[in-house]
Design a protein around this nucleic acid. Sequence first.
DNA 1: TAAAAATACTCCATAGGTATTTTAT
DNA 2: ATAAAATACCTATGGAGTATTTTTA
Lengths: 302, 302
Amino acid sequence: MVTLRQLRYLDALARHRHFGRAAEDCAVTQPALSMQIQELEAALGLPLVERRRGGVKLTSEGREIVRRGSRVLCEMRDMVDFAHHHGKGLEGSVRIGVIPSIAPYLLPTILPSLDDQRPRIELHLRETQTDTLVEELVQGLLDVILLALPVEHRGIETLPLFEDRFLLAVPKSLGLASSKRASAEMVVAQELLLLEEGHCLRDQALEFCKLVRPDLLHSFGATSLTTLLQLVANGHGVTLLPEMCLTSEISDPRVTLLRFEEPEPSRMVGLAWRDSSPRADAFRILGQLIVEARELAALPKK
Amino acid sequence: MVTLRQLRYLDALARHRHFGRAAEDCAVTQPALSMQIQELEAALGLPLVERRRGGVKLTSEGREIVRRGSRVLCEMRDMVDFAHHHGKGLEGSVRIGVIPSIAPYLLPTILPSLDDQRPRIELHLRETQTDTLVEELVQGLLDVILLALPVEHRGIETLPLFEDRFLLAVPKSLGLASSKRASAEMVVAQELLLLEEGHCLRDQALEFCKLVRPDLLHSFGATSLTTLLQLVANGHGVTLLPEMCLTSEISDPRVTLLRFEEPEPSRMVGLAWRDSSPRADAFRILGQLIVEARELAALPKK
DNA sequence: TAAAAATACTCCATAGGTATTTTAT
DNA sequence: ATAAAATACCTATGGAGTATTTTTA
């Protein structure tokens, strides 16, 4: 008989690759964990790990069992969470992940209104790149993530919130700066500055320009849009900038921002959660709140 | 702490709506099951069932927990199955479901060749309509189903196998019978005979004719294509017939079969299984075998 | 030979069984 | 009044701990 306990121990063993430390992580002794792993192997009729001095190695079947076991454990967690959070809406702790090109710009506008309207919410924020966020979401380390859609991943449900246009940032020194609208060709003709690998903005910009040979680009390995904009200001090239990122601090007299010709490139910002998530309904409301907070913040500008 | 045992008992209780019989189903005594349900309710902090004389009623939260619990149990089963069937390919018992408009025509051609090539396979066949098959697949009562795509359902993976054209069966007595090709308009102009509600062929035919008011149709409630064809032979109307169903027994001198004008209507026949299914790889091979068996059977005709 | 996993054995928590009581119609 | 679920109490299984042995790099 396969038990949840066995799956939990196996999961720990897969993470630590060491019986003793895995046992410690599970708050049991090493023999206890050893026995459960053995029983699991007996129940499944397969060896799951190769025991070798200097670490434990999963067999290929073992990896698959770990994968499936994680899913089972994750769904169990979601079930218990569902029960505990049931009817409480957004209340309680929400572990939210946000990509770097959204977090600093959108959060200042939505957090205050969120605190106003849902005082009992308790946000745990994490900011990293899309791949990591999705991985952590799937593993149950995060409850919901805010990022650029689409997200193609099994077991992930998404909710589009709003379009965010891309603008072209060009140095005033360049002749281009006087153009009314930017075009894809203009981008290709100049030095295109991008964030380092792994940032979705980089991929979106490349896709827009239909550049199939990104290896040809001079990558400055910039890690933030502010850095990127500094490079533009100093005449090193041009870059694509999401409209959302236009806050007062970012404006620089040496940089001109051009809208693109129709159809304007844009990214769709949205929320994503596990489709087994216990609080899918609450996250839809969260989406609603984000959209409203954004619209509210935009009004005064007009 | 929520345990799998509790989920199994809850599942039985949801099915039987009776503590005593659910307990019997689980091969334990009624107090044992009662206790586990109580502990589950305590762990989740929710009442799951209303105890009332003359049966047990699930609360709305209870239903959701049952749904999630079933998923957990199903994934556990799939995990154990994966381990047991691992590396054995198609060997062992496969519970396959097939829709009525495919089963009698396709199976005679594929079963023999399947037996030849995979002697150790043990097929358990079930024949019903699409909705039931999908439901049973999701619940883990079936391993794989053979039906007309698309199937839109969460957690279901599909594999298209081949196109199956629709032909128009018209009575020889009708003027139409001399036409070279049939058209959608011809169908609408005549009395269209259909299978009773629930058969996917009915829906596909209606969709093709773009009939939005199927309530206007005279439904004869035919339950088999043979019956339908008898009606056509006797001049009661016309019907759409999948090409696959053209076996010698069905041919009738009073009926003419017309191919449609381009684009010819057709259905895509394919396999579907749970995306957590342990034997997804084996089912892809099964699909391959079906396609090959069909091509083999078609050759002699030429 | 030394670290790491397996084995031996003892204990206790918990699930299950039997007998009985409570509850609701 | 009676069927059905809950409670009480006892038993036994299985998971965990401690101590120890075996394995292997």
